[in-house]
């Protein structure tokens, strides 16, 4: 799920603590800030810290001036050979190819387990919105191929498409039968997306708070941190990649429920919006001397159901007879929203 969805979920979870509301009414924003920060923290740890220290065995860095698909194919094959020969986990980094402030050379890597081949093709130039630039689709028509030493099993359905910003890391894990299991972004959710890590972080911070301010703020901080951190883990389990939920007690990522892609628009928006409504509800319940009164169902009807129905009806009216294609989200790093927010 997207960063903002996680963030708002964290704030919503924090709002369920009456102590957070009381503190807020007394001018203390910390619990809500903590909730939001912990909601987004697992991804922050991975994308803004851990990945820069994650070692790779093979770096594929195509030349922007003369992109060579054969070079890419050969390097991928070499990484596979390394994993097979040395029977160890090999990390392969596929770097992006930047051509301009807003232009990236897209390329794709496909494994053909029937022919034991890897195929690489350089596609169009795309902008930071991943929209192809007109007239660049056939700049590099050649498909390069290289033989691979083992089958590469992809349980995760993200396409190995490299375009904007940081390219993906692929982990090649030797299996018992000699095949290789392909893990997408192995450094992501390796340890950070763990309920136990959230609890440990909560305990650590709680201990500090206990020394500074006493028992009550300490356990309140612990609960807030652990819960808001944990909600991120739970939300990500709805997707495909899954997480290592009980690190360090468990070693591997538990696959997700495949209910959604992390970049899907509607689930993300609904998460954000429902979080906002829940926050509103909790604030209402904690507000002394309200002159307006409403129930939870009323709030949901006015805030979610009726506007949703109106929006759906309008959309149907406007799109009748037309074929509307909405770009689906994928699970790659979603820096696209960041580019929108830049400036």
């Amino acid at each position: 799920m997207k960063g903002f969805s996680h963030f708002m979920s964290g704030v919503a979870v924090a709002s369920f603590g009456p102590w957070a509301i009381d503190a807020a009414l007394n001018g203390n924003p910390l619990f809500f800030v903590l909730g939001g920060a912990c909601g987004i923290l697992p991804d922050t740890l991975d994308f803004k810290f851990y990945r820069f220290f994650y070692n790779h065995d093979v770096y594929v860095e195509p030349d922007p001036k003369s992109p060579d698909p054969q070079y890419v194919a050969d390097e991928v094959a070499r990484a596979i050979a390394l994993a097979v020969d040395e029977k160890r986990y090999v990390n392969l980094k596929l770097s992006s190819v930047r051509l301009g402030a807003d232009f990236w050379q897209q390329y794709s890597v496909t494994f053909d387990n029937e022919k034991l081949e890897v195929a690489v093709k350089f596609g169009p130039v795309v902008n930071t919105g991943q929209v192809p630039v007109e007239g660049t689709a056939n700049r590099y028509p050649t498909v390069a191929r290289a033989k691979i030493k083992a089958k590469v099993i992809q349980t995760y359905d993200a396409a190995l498409k490299v375009d904007i910003f940081d390219g993906p890391t692929v982990g090649l894990k030797p299996l018992e039968n000699g095949d290789l299991d392909l893990e997408f972004l192995p450094w992501h959710r390796e340890w950070s997306h763990s309920l136990t890590v959230g609890a440990m972080l909560g305990a650590l911070v709680g201990a500090g708070v206990w020394l500074a301010a006493g028992w009550t703020p300490a356990w309140q901080s612990f609960v807030t941190i652990a819960a808001c951190y944990g909600v991120h883990v739970v939300e990500d389990q709805l997707g495909h990649m899954g997480s290592n939920i009980f690190y360090p007690l468990t070693k591997l990522r538990t696959p997700g429920l495949h209910w959604m892609h992390s970049g899907d628009g509607l689930p993300n928006f609904l998460t954000v919006w429902i979080s906002c409504l829940l926050i509103f509800w909790n604030l209402y319940r904690g507000q002394p001397a309200m002159t307006y009164h409403f129930g939870f169902v009323h709030l949901m009807m006015v805030g979610l159901v009726l506007p949703g129905l109106a929006f759906g009806a309008l959309r149907w009216l406007l799109n009748r007879g037309a074929k509307v294609v909405v770009a689906k989200g994928d699970d790659a790093d979603d820096e696209w929203n960041d580019s929108k927010a830049a400036g």
Binding site: F7, A24, L25, F32, L283, Q287, T291
Partner: peptide
């Protein structure tokens, strides 16, 4: 009325997201 007394943390939450999401 519901948000009375809560505007301050809304701003802090926005600041937090602004800085963390870059």
């Amino acid at each position: 009325q519901v948000l009375k007394g809560h505007m301050h943390w809304v701003l802090w939450v926005i600041i937090t997201f602004m800085l963390m999401s870059e």
